[in-house]
Design a protein around this nucleic acid. Structure first.
Length: 317
DNA sequence: TCCCAGGACCCCC
DNA sequence: GGGGGTCATGGG
């Protein structure tokens, strides 16, 4: 087993809770002890922020990524984009965006693994985030590699090869619904393309996903593809248009139209930071307009509650 | 019971 | 190339 390691990071203008709780990543959660716990790039982490410092514990001293191997601390700075603050400019008079940005400007998009991001957002289609988390954790438990860390049991995210070995029938039996064939097909496609590459870096991953987007029944429509672009392919200008985005476009901007039209409008308006601009509004709109919603991000981060779904189990359990 | 969730896909014009 | 129906599942 790799060496466990721990340490402390100095951060500035960064909010760990908003970053890991924004809804981007499905396999992180805040435990009852106040620590954010999750697994990324095959490594388990415990993170806790106090002011300008983040304490960390990691299951390994080195992490392997599509951008090379990194020491734990360098990895976390890269993964969390600690030194890459977004610079969203609020157009004059846009009070909603101003409020949203002021609240959320310390959030970051993390550099999610493409091989995890693709199945994650294929599974997210017309399903609440909590349900998507359950399904992803289920897949990790049955197909991932078990990793014991600090008295808890984590499972790495399944490889495309492992997901590709599943069948549509199996997933339907486990109540994955209409997403079942898409998960299997997209995984098989990734597996095949990866097999022909010695090493897949960012450019290779972009090419794989861009092609997968054109494949029939891949599960990658406009919205899912934009999520993958934004969350794992460094395309920070991408704007995923979902049901919430459509609502605030209509209610706050008096904009109606197809998803594609709204997407083009938002990407043009936000420029290189359109992804952050949209995410600010997404989170803020859900916060203020949906008071019955149980998974409001800002409310949760300001509370002391534990996440309803965590990516690990007690080792005894 | 009805409505909705980080929609995709197929058919049809 | 855009509009409408259909696809399953769980929760409020």
């Amino acid at each position: 087993m790799a060496d466990e390691t721990e340490g402390e990071l100095e951060v500035e203008g960064f909010h760990l809770g908003y970053t890991l709780g924004s809804g981007q990543v499905f396999r992180w959660g805040r435990d009852v002890d106040g620590w954010w716990k999750g697994i990324a790039y095959g490594t388990a982490f415990h993170l806790k922020q106090a002011g300008s410092r983040i304490r960390y514990h990691a299951s390994a001293a080195q992490v392997s990524t599509y951008s090379g191997a990194m020491e734990t601390e360098a990895f976390l700075r890269w993964y969390l984009r600690l030194d890459e603050p977004p610079k969203v400019v609020v157009p004059r008079g846009d009070t909603h965006l101003r409020k949203a940005r002021d609240l959320l400007k310390e959030m970051r998009f993390v550099r999610q693994e493409p091989a995890e991001c693709v199945p994650s957002y294929v599974l997210s289609v017309q399903a609440r985030m909590a349900l998507t988390k359950q399904r992803l954790n289920f897949l990790a438990r049955i197909l991932g590699e078990r990793l014991d860390f600090k008295g808890e049991c984590y499972y790495t995210f399944p490889t495309p090869e492992a997901l590709g070995d599943l069948s549509e029938v199996f997933l339907r039996r486990h109540r994955f619904g209409w997403r079942s064939p898409w998960v299997v097909q997209s995984a098989r496609f990734m597996e095949e393309r990866l097999a022909s590459l010695a090493d897949a870096g960012l450019e290779e991953w972009r090419a794989i996903v861009d092609t997968l987007r054109t494949v029939r029944r891949s599960g990658l429509g406009l919205k899912v593809a934009k999520c993958i672009d934004l969350f794992s392919l460094e395309r920070l200008n991408a704007v995923p248009v979902d049901t919430w985005v459509k609502k605030f476009c209509s209610e706050w901007y008096d904009l109606e139209g197809s998803d594609k039209k709204l997407c083009e409008w938002a990407e043009a308006r936000g420029g290189r930071w359109a992804g952050y601009m949209n995410e600010y509004l997404f989170i803020y709109y859900r916060e203020v307009m949906s008071t019955t919603l149980s998974d409001r991000i800002i409310t949760f981060c300001e509370s002391e509650e534990a996440s309803p779904e965590l990516p690990m189990e007690d080792r005894a359990g």
